[in-house]
Amino acid sequence: MIFQSTRMTWNIRVRFSLAFCILLMSAFAITAQNKPKEETKKFNENCLKCHGQSKYKYVNPESGAEVTKRMYLETIINRNEFYDSNHKTFKCTDCHSEDYDTFPHPGRLRMEAKYACIDCHGGDEAYAKFKFEQIETEFQASVHSTKHSDDFNCWMCHNPHTYKINARSEEKIKDIVAYDNAICLNCHADITKYQMLTDKVNPNILKTHAWLPNQALHFKNVRCIECHARTNDSILVAHNIQPKAKAVHRCVECHSTNSILMASLYKYKVQEGRSKAGFYNGVIMNEGYVIGANRNYYLGLISLIMFGCVITGILIHGSLRIIKRKK
């Protein structure tokens, strides 16, 4: 009996160790897969030695003199941001023409068509869970697309050199909010960028949102898209940006147990199944408190029972007083 028990313990240990090893190896494999190869980094340095900084140098073949020029701001790629982005494992020439290896770059390359997200991610089983096709459909229906036609593309919000997936992370909600709102503010708080697409004057966001109580608190805790995009049950981040008139204005859309935040900002966490016992919309409670959306079932029940007892007590006491008075 003792022997059998020892053998069982031994078996469990062996199995546990094996499972641990497999887990560890998988973790290493995933980590290695997500890291840019040194070879790629070395290759990219051919581009980044100029495009990775604010100035670049070249030797003028006519005069033989070394010339220093300022790099055009839009073509500067920050190495740290790029190697932290979703596309960090890419070679520059995975997306750009290999003809860029000559300098000066051929002029025709300026007309090079840029890839949109769907060009690489569309119809790919590996990215099926991100539902790029649906995101594309939603985007096409949004004001960003309908008002600006092809001038407005994925790049406007998701710079492939820096974009980092955010909503499907375990990061703090406030960090996700700050990152995502910075994407909107990139144009909506910058008149130069805003007027690249329109001749209209960029409205002052603080003034147009003056009606919003605790404005600063809202800006810090919810994304612009919570009110400005139509939620879609089948995709994680809404891309159908609505016209101004259709933006959410009713407080109860968020401030109720049926809060839309559960279908937008907290959707990923809801899907991950995190919940707090007894709390309505418990995931919101991790980092904040939304009046009307966060109630505790048990506290509500206790207060209802206590309230019921008081009313019953008053009724009994009052009735007895009336009865005794009559006598």
Binding site: R250, C251, V252, S256, N258, G292, R295
Partner: peptide, 17 residues
Amino acid sequence: MQYTDPANPFIRFDIAV
């Protein structure tokens, strides 16, 4: 506010606030 119901608000939320 605490028991707000978008369909049948006792007092409209913004007014209640």
